[in-house]
Each structure stands twice: as C-alpha cells, then as structure tokens.
Write a protein that binds this DNA or RNA. Structure first.
Lengths: 338, 338
DNA sequence: ATGAAAGCGCTAACAA
DNA sequence: TTGTTAGCGCTTTCAT
C-alpha cells in the first residue's frame, strides 16, 4: 500500500476545486456543471483515479463484501459452490472473501472473526467436520450479520439454509442397488454429528426398510475418506466375506472410488460381484474405473441459491422475512459401477 | 454491517475515558495505569470488542491483506497453491483475498482492479489462458504494489516469480517414454502463448533430440483439456494409426487421463500398446485406470514460495532487492500407464 | 497518566 | 453551482 495512489483530495487540489465537488462530479450528481463534470472525469480517467474501497466502506457502513467459510477448496463440490456464489455476487456488485477452514475448528473460529473484523455485509458458511461448538457463528449472528448455511448446516442457529436432500439422495442410491439385485448392502458413513452423515444413513435405512430388507448395524461403517478406506481395508474385506456383501453405498465419491480400488486389488470384480455407488458426482466419477454410479449433488446451484438468499436479506435490511430452507433434489447418475 | 458493533468510542464513553486512552490501554502502552488497563481490557473482553479492520487499514495505510488472482480453483494444482499461500500468510498475520479469473481476461482485469481498490499490500498472480494484454497488471505494478507471479508468469513484467521447471519436467516425461521403448511420441500441447505451453513443448523436443529421434511437427497437437480430447478423438485415432504412435505425453493430467479413456474405448491397451504420461500429479492420477504416470508439480510448495517472496518485499519496503525467480524441479512419478 | 486534535479517503447535510 | 464541515473508527503527536 505504498501510496502511489491518487486521492480525491489530490484531484481537488490540482483542479482547484473542493473535494465534495470532485466527489459529486464523479458520480454525476445533478447539480454539478456539465463543464466541471467533464473536466473532473477526464482528469480522473487520465490519472487512473480509483476510489479507496476502505474509505468508502467506512463511510457508508457497508463493505459490499460477503464472507465465505468453506471446509476445503480442493473438493469439487465446494469449488463449484464458490463459482455459483461468485457468479451471483459479482453480478450484484459484491466481492467474496473466501476463507478455508481446512476442516479445522480453530481455523474456522479465526476465519469467522476475521470476517467480522472486516465488517462483511453477510456470511455464507458450511461448517467444518470438527466443529461441535457454534459460539463463533452465534456471535456473528448476534452481531447482526446476515448468515446463510449451506450443505453442512448448523441446526441450532435459525437462519436461511441451502441443503441437498441427503435423505432422499441416499434412499435413491440404496434403492438403485436393491433394484440391481443387491441384498446385503454395506454403508460407508460420515460422522453422525454431521447432518449430512446422519441424513444419508437414515435414507439408506429407509430404502432397506421399504424393500423389506432387514437392517444390520454391523453393515454401517464409519469411513468417509480415501485414506480411511485403505486403513480399514482388512476389516472391510472380512466384513464383505462374512456378510456376503454384494452392494456398497459410500457417503461420497472419493470413498466409493477408493473402495473400488481396494476391492479390485483383492480381485473382486465390479460391478459383477459387488456393485458400488457414491454420492456427489464430481468429475472423478467419470475418471474412475469403472465409471462410478452416483447421486448428483448440485454444487453450483447450491452456491447460487445460498447467495440469492443472502442477497434477499441484504437488500431488505430491517425487514423481517421468514427464514427459508432451500432443498435441492439430487438425481441418480448411473454409470458402470452398478 | 448493521451496527451492533462496539467501537472504541463506545467504550471510552461508557468508561468515561478518552478514545486515545482506551486505544493505548488495549495495546499495552507503557504509560497507561495498570488499573486503567485492566479496567479497559476486561470491559472490552466483556462486550466482545473487535477493532474495525477497515478503520485500522485506512489509518495505517496497510491492509495486511494480499490479493490472489488464480485461473480456476477447481484444479487441484491451484487449490494446493492456495493452501500453501494461506499457510504462510496466516502465520504472518496476513489475510488472502482470492479472486478466480475463470480463465477469462475480462474477469482478470476486474479482479485486479478490485484488489487495487481494496489497497491490498501485495498481489500474487497466475494469469489466465486468455490474457494477452498485461496493462492491468502493469498498472498495479506501477501503483507500487509488490507482485509475484507463479506458474503462469508474464515475462514482460519484471518481478519475483515462482515457476516449475517445465522444460525439465517435459524432458523427464518424454525421456521416460523413450526409455520405456517408445519411438513415435505424440505431444498434446497447451497454447504456445502460455509460457508453460511452449516450455513443455521445448522439453519434449529436447528429449527427442537427445535420444536422436527425429521430430515431426504433426506429432504436436494443440489439445489441453478433457473436452478437447473427445472432440479431437477421430483426428487423434487417425494420427495414431498413420504415425504408429506408441507413446503420448500430455501437457497435463486430465488431458492424459481423457486420452487413456478415449484410446481404451477404441480397444487400445495401455500401457501395452501405447504408453501415456501426464504432467502435474493431482489426485486424479491415482484414480485413473491404469494409474497415471506423471511428473509431479508442487502446488503447495509453489504457493509457499510465492508468498515468501512477497513477504520479503512487504517486510522490507523501499529496500531494493533484486528480483528472483524460484524454480521448482518436478520429479517423475511412475505408475502403471507407462 | 490522560486528553484533545488532526487525519487516513471519502460523502452528505448544510451553507453560501 | 460550489464549498465548508463533520464524521465513519481508529491512532498518534502534542499538549496538559
């Protein structure tokens, strides 16, 4: 910030006008002389004048910036969400301040604080896996900053939300396996304190129930990352043998893909011996061998909707609108793994 | 920014002190009474006081924010870069303002402007594929904002840079194919106006030359995305047949993987009939079938180095340090595709 | 040990 | 039509 920056005052001084006149000229205020306007504008253009966003924000008590807290940018779902948010935000003149919590609670707390410190106009959040205490978010909320949760929501805080119908998605995925002839379906699940973890498990259970298949708690294994799969490989193989597993529903694509690789390494044929389905439909699903059947989760749409809900609050300050929850419905993407 | 925010002034008024005293107390100024300090601090704590970062930046002429312009967050390489940058930046008390150009020149210009408007202390850039005019960056540079280019650099602007040794990487990849017995090697190349595009091509040519293999311009095809591969599928198959292609070096992993899929769809066995190698080593390489041999490009390290170079400028303002170019050496990652 | 005042860059109510 | 002034939230020099 070494000041090679031209300020309003600089322009005023050089043009022998007052700062207010320059300010008004620049924004086409009706009662400024056309001559003056032209003079000021061409000069400002010439010296490449750009208003200081900090000063503007301070003055207007509005930053035109919204904060985003996201677990991990590397995940395709989340980076799609970012694109969705940005496309809407930019169109409305908002900037997006992206914070990556890295699935780390401490970092999330710090990020939230940083966003508050920067006086963002609103916050979009998907909480980290390790977050179990929500004081930091409650605090932002109490500060009067509009918030929208997406995907990994916090049920304790009442506000707008955008979620995927995880229950339905899991039900669709599981039913698909059943319809393909699977009888003993293993579920690789996310931590149950995450809403997506429990909802997807419930959808799985519901599908079994609907098809009159008895549930077996042993067939639900907490395992939601690629690394996790390989570390559990022995255990999983044993389970598959003992329980005659013929179908696997994994809580996300990368777990599903790693599982296929682990099984193939043990000589198991997919889909002939065991059918596998994931959840999310990132680009990996197409790359996997065989291409992975999965349930499509709309990241870009999630981002757009979240930003739209936030905008609604920002553009109607003070007006009480009932909180709404936008539910996106996932759809089956059948490929070769089922 | 609906003001539920407590200000210094608020505290001063309530505690019947002057704003300056409060300010000093909060930052442990030596000549403030211990009593007063305690009073102020506990009160500030109690009401959850947080200094307004905007006001601070305006006052100090320093935002402690650095700007990042990146082509596409969805690419693993770039999201790793972000992590590298953030890890260093956070450690030094800097925030990172991330802008995604989406490989779009116009957007890049706007993003650059937004960063200047926000008076970021420095900028890290990897230019978009469609950028051929650098006025916007030159402008930031002329404004006295320290800049570091990484990966997709701009040769016209003299400043610090972090790059992968693309020439060497391509040479390593191509030599590997040759050592594995390939005689007729196809190169799927990136646009030549991008430094990485031409460097990688040159490395490919160099390797051929070193091994006494005649080069053939027909074996260099501009094709650097998954979609591109499938749209060129017919053309590529014809080329492979006519030229007896037995090895393919693709400018990036996703192009390499798509190529393997296209070939396999035509019944070609990999690596038996044709060996394929990529560049970059994202997680997709492990997921591909067969797992893709590639050359490792260190995203996280790139980010760290870029941020370190920038920090060096920021912490030594005014001091002229010669610009340096940090070159990261890629290493061969052999898997099953070669 | 504390306070008053000025100023970072900008806008807007009020004056002229 | 233009200028003066105050103030957004904060720090810091200069008084007291």
């Amino acid at each position: 910030m070494k000041s090679n920056h031209v300020t309003l005052k600089d322009i005023a001084r050089i043009l022998e006008l007052s700062p207010s006149t320059v300010s008004r000229a620049l924004k086409d205020h009706p009662d400024i002389n056309e001559e003056t306007k032209k003079l000021v504008k061409t000069f400002a253009e010439k010296v490449n004048y750009r208003p200081n966003a900090l000063a503007l924000s301070l003055r207007q008590q509005k930053t035109n910036t919204i904060g985003l807290i996201i677990p991990e940018i590397v995940h395709h779902f989340f980076s799609s969400v970012i694109s969705g948010i940005e496309d809407i935000a930019y169109g409305e003149g908002y900037n997006v301040m992206i914070c990556q919590s890295n699935e780390n609670y401490q970092r999330e707390v710090i990020d939230t604080q940083a966003l508050i410190d920067h006086r963002v106009d609103g916050i979009l959040v998907s909480v980290s896996k390790t977050t179990r205490d929500f004081k930091h978010l409650q605090n932002a909320y109490d500060n009067g900053i509009p918030m929208v949760f997406f995907d990994r929501i916090v049920e304790e805080i009442k506000t707008d939300r955008v979620i995927t119908d995880d229950f339905l998605g899991a039900q669709i995925a599981t039913s698909h396996l059943i319809e393909k002839g699977c009888k003993n379906i293993l579920h690789l699940a996310a931590p149950q304190h995450l809403v997506i973890g429990s909802r997807r498990k419930e959808g799985y259970l519901k599908a079994l129930e609907e098809h009159g298949i008895e549930t077996d708690e042993d067939l639900i294994v907490k395992c939601d990352t690629r690394e996790y799969v390989f570390s559990l490989q022995q255990h999983l193989m044993k389970l598959i043998e003992e329980k005659h597993i013929d179908g696997i529903f994994a809580v996300n694509d990368s777990t599903a893909i790693a599982t296929m690789q682990a099984l193939q390494a043990e000589g198991i044929k997919i889909p002939e011996q065991i059918k596998v389905i994931g959840f999310g439909d990132g680009p990996n699903a197409d790359i996997a061998y065989p291409p992975l059947s999965t349930v499509e989760q709309k990241g870009y749409e999630t981002g757009r909707e979240a930003m739209r809900l936030l905008l609604q609050r920002l553009e109607n300050p003070g007006i009480e609108i009932n909180f709404s929850t936008k539910v996106l419905t996932p759809t089956l993407k059948q490929r070769k793994s089922t």
